[in-house]
Design a protein around this nucleic acid. Structure first.
Lengths: 201, 201, 201, 201
DNA sequence: TATGAATGAGAATTCATTCAT
DNA sequence: CATGAATGAATTCTCATTCAT
């Protein structure tokens, strides 16, 4: 692929990421993406076959980017076990905050039936594998509950970090909690961490 | 309003609820809604001004319905405090399972900036107020952590119950967890309940 | 269907007949048809589902019209047996001359694989049945060859009449024969009739 | 022209012949032709100016090829006069069967007003001249009708052989005759030959 | 000569909305 | 109140052709 083509492809992907993230698959307009990318509409079809293909490519790119960010969790070691809950939670909250496309695309994808994300399976495996090992070590050393499997632990953290950013708007309306404000987030995160601590008292 | 007109309005709302829930605002088709409702398209415009108006009306109706369902939580009393976590979680999971429109519309709404749900604020206040009273009572009686405010407690439950159904599809792909299966849900819920229990050991 | 809708439908069909006949399925433009018919493009889709549906409808209409014209052959009786060859040939040549859409649509259809004409089978049966009866009577009365079945007889006439008009242009270039000129047609038709006569000498 | 360039040109022509024959001028795709030929699209424009030019070139090539095939008719001699009808008919039917591009391109050309084939006039003259001599010899020797000129004779054969293959699809639908089947073709050809024989009885 | 990248005009089809009865 | 007919602006996607290397 020529240099120019690579640039074009990147421009399209960038524009598409924004547009799809903002408006979802159906709401996004191919014309808008092309215009935003500053390329001819046809380039889009030549590169990605069609709108769905482009969406899938965007999904893949975003997931890949995210996986890279997530990798910092791989650096956690045995010594971090006592603070593991907080470290993981902070990582995910930060990640969702800095990359709103992530939760947004996830949300669109789930709403639209997961049609486009097939074939993305297992992208974040290594991180989860690593965390599982640490968690199970922590169970043995008495830092985590023996009767709570890793799945239950990580699931709670994933849910909380995602929900905190994704449902900000309606959450504010129904509960009054404004998760846009850092101090509110801090309170909620601390609450979660405290609740998940072994030395609950 | 005549009897017939009321029926028409109801038929439209019911069809629109299904269609919007399934495909979101942009994906939903006015023609489909009218056809599904068995009425002429013009009826739709006479009743709801336009597509956006109809969406707002659906949102309002769904939220009202849900608030009614949620009211069963008002029946909880002091005696239920020991099992409060489980009771609330089960209630929300069940609610999301039986009424997928709820999380779906919430998701659309959050993605689209909460444009349509303005003015729906405070609809579920009484329930939260009631639960807060029970929780704080529980804190005093030693059932809940003193340093975890009600907001943190309920937030965790809301997040987990929502996430479990809303992110089923991508969750399965990224973690392998299939939350469609009741046994998986049970495991996750139990894990959450165990983690949030005071008598953690 | 309302009066207005009927008019619309007719206008579309008329315009489509011209356009498809002139340019074939692929060459014809939906926009052109709609413009020519003086209606909104969408009317076309509401009435005929899509371009292919419209083409099929046109084919059906043309075949029906033609069948009506062909019916004059049903008036032939026993007394016409001696001149049967000439009468049939003249009828078909005249028909193809007056309704060029017929051979043209046939030609497009054959070129494009007959996709659109499925379900038109048997439309001209009654005429062929009638002619077969006359021909077989003529065989017994010695007007036609005993060892030439009706199929062979009618096939020759169909071929000649069709070819004469359909292949005018290339025929002129390759043989010099200009079938546009009535006198040339007359010569060719007479030749065919003479060749097909029993009393060949 | 270099060896390589000649190969390219041939590859394009071969691919174009297939594509145009199958889908006609409008239905054919330049991309498909280039891909099928295994060359860059630009090669196509460098060699043939544009799509129409390529079509004309294909037409010319096909007609030339066909003329070559037709030349076997030049081998016919006086001794073949008694079976002349059958020999010519068989030759043309065989030719149309083996080279469907021929009738197809003829058909497209006639439908589209003969725009592309101008300048191809007289390509098959020598064959027709030869056959005319044989036929007129046969008329004198009593093998053919004195009052049927050569034009009438050859026209009937051209029409029948062309129609048999070109109108197969619609013919089957309107008459039930399936000219794809060799036995049906045989029956029809025999019928034609019998009808055109002098010794009609 | 040869090629991958790029384009603008246009192709079919769909949609939310309004008109006329 | 109710409906079938109608519309114009989009929307996705394609095509023949040209550019730049």
């Amino acid at each position: 692929m020529q240099q120019r083509a690579i640039q074009t492809r990147h421009a399209i992907l960038a524009a598409a990421r924004t547009e799809f993230s903002l408006k979802g698959f159906h709401g996004a307009r191919v014309d808008t993406i092309a215009a935003e990318a500053g390329v001819n509409k046809q380039r889009l079809y030549a590169n990605f076959k069609n709108k769905a293909g482009l969406f899938a490519a965007v999904l893949k790119a975003v997931f890949t980017d995210l996986a890279r960010e997530e990798n910092e969790l791989l650096k956690l070691s045995m010594r971090d076990i006592p603070r593991l809950t907080k470290l993981i939670l902070d990582c995910y909250v930060s990640l969702h905050t800095r990359h709103p496309e992530f939760w947004r695309l996830l949300a669109w994808e789930n709403l639209e039936g997961g049609q486009h994300s097939a074939g993305l399976a297992g992208l974040k495996d290594p991180v989860l594998t690593h965390l599982r090992r640490l968690y199970e070590r922590g169970q043995k050393s008495g830092h985590f509950l023996k009767n709570v499997p890793f799945e239950g632990f990580i699931f709670n953290l994933l849910a909380v970090s995602y929900f905190m950013v994704s449902n900000r708007l309606t959450l504010k309306q129904s509960t009054g909690l404004d998760c846009s404000r850092p101090e509110v987030r801090k309170i909620l995160c601390e609450a979660v961490v405290r609740q998940l601590r072994k030395d609950y008292k």
